[in-house]
Write a protein that binds this DNA or RNA. Structure first.
Lengths: 261, 261
DNA sequence: GAACTATATTCCGCAATGCGGAACAAAGTG
DNA sequence: CACTTTGTTCCGCATTGCGGAATATAGTTC
């Protein structure tokens, strides 16, 4: 195993490996999983048992993990939640957007989400569902791909040339040989956004889900780029309705949220 | 300050200091703060500048921090959000409780929250507000003290003797010389819970907020203890209403959520 | 535009810190 | 009761992270 002997890995004297490894343990918990054994953590992180043991020990002491009394398995601790809530609290846009989104969702009986780009993903910062009952409303924090969702395409299309280049490269490695196909789709979406102001994804990300997306003009360019989507079940929304009713309303919503444009 | 006699500090060969420090940096961001300078981080964490610099470098590379282009300040990154959402996703109770809580909030035009104890705090796992408009709905992840809130008192009162002992000790150090007073209050609350099944906090935690709390029977004892509260503004809810209408309904809600009791 | 502050990053020698294989425990399984 | 599987502890080694000091960068003031 000769991992890149010189310059690459080895010379980064600033990178704190132990910290990275600890976080690797935390992020090994996939959403929806309750508790993981020490060994599963070792497998997923690729770290030796003893190292994982030390890291879990440390994380548990700090409250970022908690250990189930009988099984000995580890769960994510509540301290992690505090961090997550601090993230959300730091985005003031949510404070402005949330009530407007809620009104929108009620008025059009459709779900609407606010997202932000992180690499080749969109991370949801806020979601308002139309019907009160639908599942758990916490898509907040979840990720959807830039390439195949309406919200992602809207965001992609709003990127400047330099940033788009970067995103392209990231996706090229992510999608491998499928990239040319994906890129063609993206370019097509971008043209649509330029012409009509919104993007669409009709059943492409999730079957039977119709969605349109728009970008929010970013307050400071180079900052995180924000975007909105509206999505509903295919049985209730056909393409025409999405294009002629929902999309214009969503553009209107975007203007409400960011009045300066 | 000598905590936990010798063994502790002496040489905990298992404790990974670098990891702890990195997390200390992340948790230095208090909710509502957008961006922090490297120096503020150094102050808050008590770490030397150069160390903080290395840690922020590492965290940024991993996506747990992001650096503002112009100011150079750091913000919590979206990767942190992913962790937080994984925590929430791991508690299946939310899936059951959320819709019931929503119905409750609408029916009684009152806010209702689901919390879990973490030491001498309650951490909110889910919140449903009565009015759509009230501020940002993200109390999820925030902490309130066990001692002075209805939800905390309900939780405290449901603890077994051993756990209560532990919680007492924690609070004794937390409240210092005020502890005897606090403890008296808690004992009083506990008696009320034993007699009537619910706790109350009328304006004690936040002025003009009336709240009652009940505990959910914990599925496995020794596990995290869950609890509910219902709270509303004093101008809309008087003590009688809270006791005779809201409290019984909340107990009913608890039974709905955990049918096995 | 020089002189000065304040803040962030980088350097670099030192040793403390974290590493991980292997031995040791503990808890299931057949 | 041997046998497998999983978790913790030991311990010598050198890697890794440490932090003071030096260096870069930016913003003020005169």
């Amino acid at each position: 195993m000769s991992f890149t002997p010189q310059e690459d890995e080895s010379k980064d004297r600033l990178f704190v490996e132990a910290l990275a490894r600890g976080l690797r343990v935390l992020s090994a918990f996939r959403p929806g999983e309750s508790a993981l054994s020490n060994q599963v953590l070792a497998q997923r992180t690729g770290l030796p048992k003893s190292t994982v043991s030390r890291l879990t020990y440390t994380l548990t002491k700090l409250g970022y993990l908690s250990q189930d009394a009988d099984s000995g398995y580890y769960r994510l601790g509540l301290a992690v939640l505090a961090l997550g809530s601090a993230v959300l609290g730091s985005y003031d846009i949510r404070r402005v957007a949330a009530p407007l989104m809620r009104d929108f969702a009620l008025k059009h009986t459709i779900s609407v989400s606010l997202g932000m780009r992180d690499g080749s993903d969109i991370v949801y910062l806020e979601t308002c569902r139309s019907q009160a009952r639908v599942s758990v409303q916490l898509s907040v924090g979840s990720r959807v791909p830039l390439a195949s969702t309406a919200i992602g395409r809207a965001c992609y299309s709003s990127l400047g040339a330099a940033e788009r280049e970067l995103a392209d490269m990231e996706m090229a490695t992510r999608y491998g040989k499928d990239w040319p196909l994906v890129q063609a789709k993206l370019e097509q979406a971008r043209q649509q956004v330029l012409q009509r102001g919104y993007s669409e994804s009709f059943g492409e990300f999730e079957r039977d889900v119709m969605a349109v997306g728009v970008a929010l003009p970013s307050p400071a360019p180079g900052q995180g780029s924000l975007c909105l989507n509206a999505s509903g079940p295919a049985f209730a929304f056909d393409a025409d309705t999405m294009r002629n009713q929902v999309a214009p309303a969503l553009l209107q919503l975007a203007r409400q949220i960011v009045p300066g444009a």
